[in-house]
Design a protein around this nucleic acid. Structure first.
Lengths: 139, 139
DNA sequence: CTTGACCTTCCAATCATTGGAAGCCTTATC
DNA sequence: GATAAGGCTTCCAATGATTGGAAGGTCAAG
């Protein structure tokens, strides 16, 4: 299999496969006499694993660990679970951050007339740093 | 005020202030005879506006627009509201994406014993692409 | 033999921020 | 007046993951 075949079979872009190799996430592929990279079905499995892990938002760094555990027959599921739960904790933290942003803005937008007049609570919030509420103007 | 003073007063790092200037988000600061940047309290207001907008997750591109509207006395609040709601829509899309990741992983982690044995539903999901559930193994 | 589709490497851009290096300016102290 | 500390200047580079392009080599079919 060439890199293009592996890309189709795994769903990982050929360019990305080369990148993953360059950073050491996947081992260096074998080469034909003319220098083309060669892939086996087992290489494709690794690529699919990586792709699925990326879909779940794992960082490349954590995927390195997961691939290592995956290929380690003496792993404990506790190790895998810890990596996953660490990631879940980061996801939840990010969600909470975005949730707070969205709620604040939704609130401000709700208070904004949205007409042709220039007066706007959104701009007032940005101006004043968000340290107050529309019903409680700063002293 | 020097850039360091403006940084303290606005909460925006001096390095970041230079960056914002370089990309045209804020106008070029005046200079002393020796080349130091000079800032006025009104410049600090702009920096605070930018900082608050970044805290709410607005992209630099949208902040450009917001600053323009802020300083345009003939703006309509509808324009501001539209920019804000576009951003809210992006935030909600991102939240939904992260929520799906987190829920999937939480489910998988729940099904994982987390003990010293190697068997692990998390790794099985990554291996098989998540196209099935623990109770419904693939045919 | 030519065309087109593939492969190779290298370099650059994205987004927002941070870091460092090398060198100049200002202020305080001796 | 010399010197040291600390702030300022510019330029270059790195982050994370991915994508884009350019320039050139290789393979298969027509």
């Amino acid at each position: 299999m060439t890199i293009g075949d592996a890309a189709k079979a795994s769903g990982v872009n050929a360019k990305l496969i080369r990148y993953y190799e360059s950073i050491g996430l996947i081992p260096e592929a074998g080469r034909t006499a003319s220098g083309y990279r060669v892939y086996s079905p087992s290489d494709v499995n690794v690529l699919r694993f990586v792709k699925r892990a990326r879909t779940l938002g794992f960082s490349i760094e954590r995927i390195q660990i997961l691939v290592g555990l995956w290929q380690d027959r003496s792993r404990s599921s506790a190790e895998v679970k810890r990596v996953a739960l660490d990631h879940v904790a980061e996801l939840e933290a990010k969600i909470a951050e975005l949730r707070a942003m969205s709620d604040t803005l939704t609130h401000l937008a709700h208070a904004c007339h949205g007409d042709e007049r220039p007066d706007c609570p959104i701009l007032r919030d940005l101006e004043e740093g968000g340290g107050h509420c529309c019903d409680e103007p700063p002293p």
